[in-house]
């Protein structure tokens, strides 16, 4: 929380920086907890409903804790035309995600779709923590996640 306060202070507690503040906080903590939003509301002297309202308007803000790796499958036109949906489905299946679930049970992966990343020439693309992987296929995507899982497992053993 001290760090959150620092971030807010760095913007001079000005209301119009609300979005930038939430972006910075999320960049560090991966999501915005109710406590964080309440603190922001209090320090910027705005209603907490307003802060919640802004946070839920924008796609990029997450009010739920996310996995260590955030996987985004681009569903822009170019990627869609080049079959991004099967990739998304394959990953869902691989992560054993239920209906509205976005984060895998082990807390490692969060799967999202994203509106055009602008890397259309490389379609279909998948990003893992904002690193772009181009010309993906369902198989390549699973391979990628498998590698990450193995890496994590190796880490845990160390």
């Amino acid at each position: 929380m001290a760090r959150v306060e620092e971030i807010i202070d760095s913007y001079g507690c000005e209301r119009h920086h609300l979005i930038a503040i939430m972006q910075d906080v999320q960049a560090e903590f991966k999501y915005l907890s109710p406590q964080v939003l309440e603190l922001i509301a209090q320090k910027l002297d705005i209603g907490v409903a307003k802060v919640y309202s802004v946070a839920t308007f924008y796609e990029n803000f997450s009010l739920e804790a996310k996995g260590k790796y955030i996987i985004k499958v681009c569903d822009g036109t170019a990627c869609h035309v080049r079959k991004s949906q099967p990739i998304y489905n394959a990953i869902r299946e691989y992560l054993e995600l239920e209906e509205k679930q976005k984060t895998s049970a082990d807390g490692l992966f969060t799967l999202e779709t994203v509106a055009c990343l602008g890397a259309c020439g490389l379609a279909p693309v998948v990003t893992v923590n904002d690193q772009v992987h181009s010309k993906m296929s369902p198989e390549l995507a699973i391979e990628l996640l498998d590698d990450l899982r193995k890496e994590e497992a190796a880490h845990d053993r160390d």
């Binding site: 509106a115 055009c116 259309c120």
Partner: peptide, 8 residues
């Protein structure tokens, strides 16, 4: 804020 899918 270039948001059109497929435009960059």
């Amino acid at each position: 804020d270039e948001g059109d899918p497929g435009a960059f």
